[in-house]
């Protein structure tokens, strides 16, 4: 299969730019990063899905003879997947923006702060503190007790 270098490079550029935005603390920037990345990945799908061709539309006459690949129609399977991805991205966009808005309402900022629970666990790990464990007590609850039975061996 012949590989389209322009599209492969573009996929890398879009994902790379997306990553730079993604690893920032602003929710909106991170969302823009996700959108860039998903555009990049969709383009990568074009590269790996094979040679371009006519639109995958057939009629009664052409259904039996249509071939997939160079000179025929483009591969429909990756297209169905990408189409699904596009719509999911829309839903994710709406949700992330609602999150950003909520964050703004609460703190007039869309900056993601450090997670306090994670910080707490990090501190526990640093101190080797197993207070959260259910198995802090190693005692055998059914050990033979030290106290003798009262009243003649009871």
């Amino acid at each position: 299969m012949t590989v389209n270098l322009t599209l492969a490079a573009l996929a890398g550029v879009l994902v790379g730019c997306g990553v730079v935005l993604l690893v920032s603390r602003s929710l909106v920037r991170a969302l823009l990063g996700v959108l860039l990345m998903s555009n990049g990945v969709n383009v990568a799908f074009l590269v790996v899905s094979g040679d371009p061709g006519r639109a995958p539309l057939v009629t009664k006459e052409t259904a039996d003879t249509a071939v997939i690949g160079a000179g025929g129609i483009s591969d429909p399977l990756p297209q169905a997947m990408v189409l699904t991805a596009i719509v999911i991205t829309l839903a994710v966009t709406a949700f992330a923006l609602a999150l950003a808005h909520r964050s703004w309402q609460v703190s007039t900022s869309d900056i993601v702060t450090d997670d306090t629970e994670d910080t707490r666990i990090g501190d526990l790990a640093a101190k080797n503190d197993l207070a959260d464990s259910d198995y802090g007590d190693l005692e055998d609850p059914y050990a033979l007790s030290d106290e003798p039975d009262p009243e003649g061996g009871r």
Partner: peptide
């Protein structure tokens, strides 16, 4: 961040080319 982005982008391009060629 930019280093991370450049490296990830390079991996994506590389993976795309290799995967498409390996078919």
């Amino acid at each position: 961040r930019v280093t991370l982005g450049v490296l990830t982008g390079a991996v994506v391009t590389g993976a795309t080319v290799v995967a498409a060629g390996a078919r």
